[in-house]
Design a protein around this nucleic acid. Structure first.
Ligand SMILES: [Mn+2]
Ligand SMILES: [Mn+2]
Ligand SMILES: [Zn+2]
Ligand SMILES: [Zn+2]
Lengths: 138, 138
DNA sequence: GCAATAAATGCACTTCCGTTGCACGGTTTA
DNA sequence: TAAACCGTGCAACGGAAGTGCATTTATTGC
């Protein structure tokens, strides 16, 4: 628990009780979580607090937002060496059509693509949809 | 106009007045359009009709839906040889951070990516964000 | 320790988009 | 022509994101 506090402080985010809980919750999940997921996990907490916590985490580089095509924003903890901002470092995400879960494939970077003249790339998002490892029967 | 009727009939969609207008509107735009865009263009028409028209067009392979990360569904006419269903044929989309417009880069296919064991790809979505040709000063 | 200040939280409310149910009217088919 | 079907319009709902403001909690200067 002390570790989480350290992690938050290192990112200049004050380690409040709620923030530590949310961080812990996300760390235990290996999949991307939606605001509603957290809301259901902590019936006690207010959605606005969770919402703003995620925004804060995102601004401070603790989590990154994931758009998996479900129109529900998901979030996942950044890996130790994660540089979401840098275009080179963008990894792809996988969304399972069966269990509806989204995972970061941190090792799989988005391949470089050539664009027509005049187009300048600043960011990229690649989502693969299909059947995940758990659902494909190992 | 007769051509549009033919096109719709070829896709087994009855060419009603409204459908022809919507098709024409989309054909004239070179960018992806949202339901609200069409709604604003045809103040007369009901939102539901436009919504269902787009759904019908999508089912019949006349348009394809685009998720550009804005959380607003966009649609664009399928090119003559478009096979949206086939995974191999998926092209990428570009969303301009400046003018907020989204375009199909039909010629640019989504590169094949390797997935970890157990993952089966069925669909893919690649969106590049940045500055479009118009906004980058040619 | 205490007052002043700033930050975090909670509640209420709004907006936006997508979606559905149902009723009406025109078109196709038997 | 009658029945069946399909397209359209109106109304309403639901989920999720986002905002304003009051309240509580933590931090800082004295
Ligand atoms: Mn990720
Ligand atoms: Mn396209
Ligand atoms: Zn799965
Ligand atoms: Zn632009």
């Amino acid at each position: 628990m002390k570790e989480i506090e350290k992690t938050l402080e290192n990112k200049s985010v004050r380690p409040t009780a709620m923030r530590i809980l949310i961080y812990k919750y996300m760390a235990e999940k290996e999949i991307a979580v939606a605001l509603t997921d957290i809301e259901n996990a902590f019936a006690k907490a207010d959605r606005t607090t969770l919402y703003r916590t995620l925004k804060t985490f995102e601004e401070k580089g603790i989590v990154h937002q994931i758009d998996d095509g479900t129109n529900i924003s998901k979030y996942a903890l950044c890996e130790p060496g994660c540089n979401c901002e840098i275009e080179q470092d963008l990894h792809l995400h996988f969304h399972c059509n069966n269990c509806d879960e989204t995972v970061c494939l941190t090792e799989h970077k988005i391949p470089q693509v050539n664009l027509p003249d005049g187009y300048v790339a600043e960011d990229a998002n690649l989502v693969i949809k299909g059947i995940c490892e758990k659902c494909s029967g190992q």
